[in-house]
């Protein structure tokens, strides 16, 4: 099955690249501030949560100041949630391609996720400035960011394929996904550290694969430590099961896309 995905992508690699490029280009052409939204969005989110939880409620965050904690949380979370949002719409919004051309439709899912990478890189640049300001020195463990982001992308494509294929048949999904992503944001340690979850609930929190991914990413960047083995393993297993399930569902429903969309 994995081989099948790989050969499909390889055969349509130029189409994938062109779609990514189109996605990135059209996004920044239309918005007034263009590329700067990639930085302004997490900055604004971080600022709001920093005011509320950092200054007013004063969440205990251990050795790490709240601002870098919440900012790094948001850039890694936004990469996931924006990937999922655009992947969900990718089949229906490309109906002119879907109804007229024979190609593996997962290309549209992958292109909407890859199209989010420029945003991520731009916001990572800001994160580095914040790290310098707070005098947080990175260690070699910062390299964990790369495999962790890959797992995050796999998870995003799993969720994206799941909702995108259902969205072709039921447009209600378009309305459901943002609500679900908001709930998911609060259930994942993005605006708070994992430690602030009571001990007896931590296992449940770790069943959410985004917990291991987000904590791992934050550990790598802010603490300079490798990810927690147990959380990471759990995240990888759940992500893997989910991506297989999603892919099979997607491939099953794909046959009807061009007739229904």
């Amino acid at each position: 099955m994995k081989l099948l995905i790989a050969s499909n992508i390889w055969r349509f690699r130029y189409l994938l690249l062109l779609l990514v490029w189109r996605d990135v280009k059209s996004r920044y052409k239309q918005a007034l501030f263009g590329f700067s939204w990639a930085i302004l969005t997490p900055a604004f989110q971080a600022l709001v949560y920093w005011l509320v939880f950092g200054l007013v409620f004063k969440i205990p965050t251990g050795n790490i100041p709240y601002l870098p904690l919440v900012f790094s949380g948001f850039i890694f979370w936004n990469f996931f949630s924006q990937s999922v949002s655009s992947a969900t719409l990718s089949i229906t919004s490309n109906s002119n391609l879907v109804t007229k051309i024979a190609f593996p439709k997962e290309i549209l899912i992958f292109s909407s996720i890859l199209g989010r990478i420029p945003d991520l890189i731009a916001s990572l640049a800001v994160l580095i400035i914040i790290l310098i300001f707070y005098q947080i020195n990175p260690s070699v463990h910062i390299l964990w960011v790369i495999p962790l982001l890959l797992i995050e992308m796999v998870m995003a494509s799993a969720v994206g394929m799941f909702f995108a294929s259902l969205n072709v048949y039921f447009r209600d999904i378009t309305a459901v996904v943002p609500i679900l992503l908001m709930a998911w944001l609060f259930l994942t340690p993005v605006i708070y550290p994992l430690e602030s979850i009571p001990q007896q609930y931590q296992l449940y929190a770790k069943l959410n694969p985004m917990t291991g991914i987000l904590e791992g990413l934050r550990n790598a960047v802010l603490v300079g430590a490798p990810p927690d083995n147990f959380s990471m393993l759990l995240s990888i297993i759940i992500t893997f099961i989910f991506v297989i399930f999603s892919y099979l569902l997607f491939k099953k429903l794909e046959k009807g896309f061009s007739d229904v969309v």
Binding site: F12, Y14, L15, L18, R22, S26, N96, L97, K100, I101
Partner: peptide
């Protein structure tokens, strides 16, 4: 297989790759 937002040049590439 053409994309309306793409230019003629880009669509030549898009269609060719498809």
């Amino acid at each position: 297989g053409f994309h309306p937002d793409f230019t003629g040049r880009e669509n030549i590439y898009l269609y060719g790759t498809i």
